[in-house]
């Protein structure tokens, strides 16, 4: 029988699991409205909650023999009714995804250009602040403050979007990261800008410094030191 576990420290009371669960296994509990498992026996092991949880604090064990509820053909109609729409995947083709990606590129580029135009040098603080705020969505990354482990964790966490090689300085307090392949490079290349030194890249480097600062409890800042073919960025604790 499937068993649902909630890592309480990670729950951010978003309520998505309570909304999505087809068998109402969860309820919001207490003044903080944290999710709580109240009908364990009703779990059908669809794992929708696991996929949906932005904090990744939900797990379902002993669900191996269950096929995902929402992917079973016989449940399609029910899932559609819950979602009140035909799943987006069925409506969109590859051309739509390509177009959506292009739109996202343009929006990102426009957003970073607007920040630069309005805030000038002040945009770096905004980039880092964004990293600080985004860190709250990755509670699992708070497990270590040691730089080498932290970077290893970040490499795993962002493997779907970019890769990087890290070289720690001798004092193990700063690190030089090389990004040979990064989703952001495609965005800036589409706009004819050089990877690494483009404004969007600079913003992202500070965003990454913000993440490192939040997870380590130290104040990291970024300095782009190389942009030929790939980004090389030094992250160091601000003295």
């Amino acid at each position: 029988m499937p068993t649902v576990h909630i890592e309480e420290a990670g729950c951010r009371d978003c309520g998505l699991c309570v909304e999505i669960c087809p068998t109402d296994v969860f309820e919001e509990d207490g003044p903080k409205k944290l999710a709580k498992v109240v009908r364990q026996d009703d779990c059908i092991g669809c794992t929708s909650c696991v996929y949906l949880c932005p904090s990744r604090c939900l797990s379902v064990t002993d669900a191996k023999t269950q096929r995902p509820f929402h992917r079973m053909e016989s449940n399609r109609a029910l899932v559609s009714r819950f979602l009140q729409q035909v799943p987006a995947m069925e409506q969109l083709g590859q051309a739509d995804y390509d177009e959506a990606l292009k739109d996202t590129h343009v929006r990102l580029q426009a957003l970073s250009d607007a920040l630069k135009e309005i805030m000038g040098r002040g945009q770096r603080a905004v980039g880092r602040s964004a990293g600080n705020l985004a860190a709250a969505h990755m509670p699992e990354m708070y497990e270590t403050t040691e730089l080498a482990q932290l970077l290893a964790g970040l490499r795993r966490r962002f493997a779907h979007a970019f890769e990087f090689d890290a070289q720690l300085d001798t004092d193990a307090k700063s690190a030089t990261l090389t990004f040979p392949a990064c989703a952001m490079h495609k965005v800036v290349a589409a706009q004819g800008e050089p990877a690494g030194s483009a404004n969007l890249c600079e913003l992202f480097h500070e965003y990454f410094a913000g993440l490192m600062s939040a997870f380590s409890g130290k104040s990291y800042t970024s300095a782009t030191i190389g942009t030929v073919g790939q980004c090389t960025v030094k992250f160091q604790i601000r003295s």
Partner: peptide
Amino acid sequence: IDGFIVASVLPSEVDEELVSGMAAAMLGV
């Protein structure tokens, strides 16, 4: 300008990190 507090005598109830970020942004604007 990077949004770091260099020195401060702010009241304890003020969030220094937030103030420093906003001040840097304001300086930029």
